[in-house]
């Protein structure tokens, strides 16, 4: 980043007065933003919350069970032929 200076008789736009600056003051917004920032900083990750951890574990187990059952039921065409040969 380059810095460039511009020197003129009046400089920048006139400095705001105390009353104009006071209009920009908003302590409520500051406290709100502070709480928002600290909440985000201290938010517990899902896996560290016992309830959320158990819920996640159940979902993973159910998904695993479903895939296992589905793979057992699904018999490939090659293995089906072998079964027929054995029956004959």
């Amino acid at each position: 980043m380059n810095r460039r200076y511009r020197i003129s008789p009046e400089g920048r736009q006139p400095e705001p007065t105390d009353a104009e600056i006071a209009r920009y003051r908003d302590p409520k917004r500051l406290v709100y933003n502070y709480h928002k920032a600290t909440r985000a900083l201290h938010r517990k990750p899902l896996y560290k919350d016992p309830k959320a951890f158990i819920a996640l574990l159940i979902i993973v187990l159910i998904t695993w069970l479903i895939t296992e059952v589905a793979s057992d039921r699904h018999v490939s065409p090659a293995s089906q032929d072998q079964l027929h040969e054995q029956v004959d």
């Binding site: 980043m1 380059n2 810095r3 200076y5 511009r6 020197i7 003129s8 008789p9 400089g11 920048r12």
Partner: peptide
């Protein structure tokens, strides 16, 4: 705020310099 800018212009008045 300025880190992504290529150039920053700072105005100064005669009185300031």
């Amino acid at each position: 705020h300025w880190r992504k800018r290529k150039e920053v212009v700072i105005d100064m008045s005669y009185a300031e310099v």
